[in-house]
């Protein structure tokens, strides 16, 4: 059985409770309406929150679907350690998928550029993994406040058999009555965190004591500066250019992905209280550190149409 951890927590603030209730409703609705759901799990803070909510939604039953991790092979090693630890602790079923074409052709963010790399190792990989498992529903931790095209997406977001999103033709979605009717081969992406903001996620992580990857907390770490981004220099696969030098700095990450593409921020926020304080006064948005969002205007929408989460 799915064991709760902490019986002594103070009650949640009403606005977090409301968001939690909504997410649980969505989890249950999808699990009941679809034959073969899966939950995308990226090991980041939103995924950690999503996982926690899924455990709550089905308790005392275990989560009735597997987790899917699209592993590009270039994730921070701390993320993989954290993932494996958690899967064991909660007795979860995890499917880790890496695009074999990318491995065979030796696709890396250094040799192929971030756009092509992302397309092959994330978007194409996701499509392949979803086809492999013949999933008719996939949960994701995307939030509407992340980006302008996400702000337009439904909670049940319809996908054609080739995983395409047609943003101009979304089904109306009234009240919390979701239309889960699809034909064979079609699927739905479901977003329980749609209405959460970055600050809501952190407040919830604090209130619920949700475990997250330590890279979110500031620490003195080795970094290099590349294309205006601070890149963590802990991984042996990072090749330094002649002019690049490793420096020690107090840094943390606001979002986590592939280490060569995730920019760190200088920060002294060593615990959750300090993180919440930091984002409340932050003058830049959380996606600023992501290389893939900066490639071109409207790039997120284009990737999403192709099947990216």
């Amino acid at each position: 059985m799915n064991e709760p951890e902490n019986h002594q927590k103070p009650p949640l603030e009403p606005h977090l409770k409301e968001l939690e209730n909504e997410a649980i409703f969505i989890f249950r609705e999808v699990a009941a309406e679809f034959e073969n759901p899966v939950m995308l799990y990226s090991v980041g803070k939103d995924s950690s929150t999503l996982l926690h909510l899924a455990r709550k939604a089905f308790y005392p039953e275990k989560i009735p679907f597997p987790l899917l991790h699209i592993n590009t092979g270039w994730k921070f090693s701390q993320m993989i350690e954290f993932r494996d630890e958690l899967i064991k602790r909660y007795e979860l079923e995890l499917i880790s998928f890496t695009n074999p074409r990318g491995v065979n052709e030796n696709v890396t963010p250094f040799t192929h550029g971030s756009a092509l790399y992302t397309d092959i190792m994330k978007t194409e990989a996701l499509r392949m993994a979803l086809d492999d498992g013949q999933y008719d529903a996939a949960f994701g931790g995307a939030r509407r406040d992340e980006e302008a095209s996400r702000a337009k997406e439904r909670i049940y977001s319809f996908r054609t058999p080739d995983h395409r999103w047609d943003p101009r033709n979304q089904r109306p979605e009234l009240w919390s009555i979701y239309n889960g009717m699809i034909k064979k081969g079609e699927s739905v992406r479901a977003f329980p965190l749609s209405n959460w903001t970055e600050s809501d996620v952190w407040q919830y992580i604090r209130a619920e004591d949700i475990p997250i990857v330590p890279l979110y907390f500031a620490k003195n770490r080795p970094v290099i500066e590349r294309d205006g981004m601070l890149i963590l220099a802990e991984d042996k696969r990072l090749e330094l250019a002649p002019n690049e030098q490793i420096k020690q700095m107090d840094i943390r990450f606001r979002t986590l992905g592939c280490f060569p593409l995730s920019g760190a921020i200088k920060s002294e926020a060593r615990n959750i209280d300090e993180i919440i304080e930091e984002i409340e006064v932050a003058t830049v948005s959380e996606r600023q550190g992501r290389a893939i969002d900066r490639d071109q205007a409207g790039s997120m929408e284009m990737k999403k149409r192709e099947g990216y989460f």
Binding site: R144, S149, K152, R168, Q170, M302
Partner: peptide
């Protein structure tokens, strides 16, 4: 443009679908 996040919206200068903001 802070709201009209779809390419088609930006090109045509109209809103097509609802945008949620917080």
């Amino acid at each position: 443009l802070l709201l009209d996040g779809l390419q088609a919206e930006r090109e045509q200068g109209i809103t097509i679908d609802v945008a949620y903001r917080y």
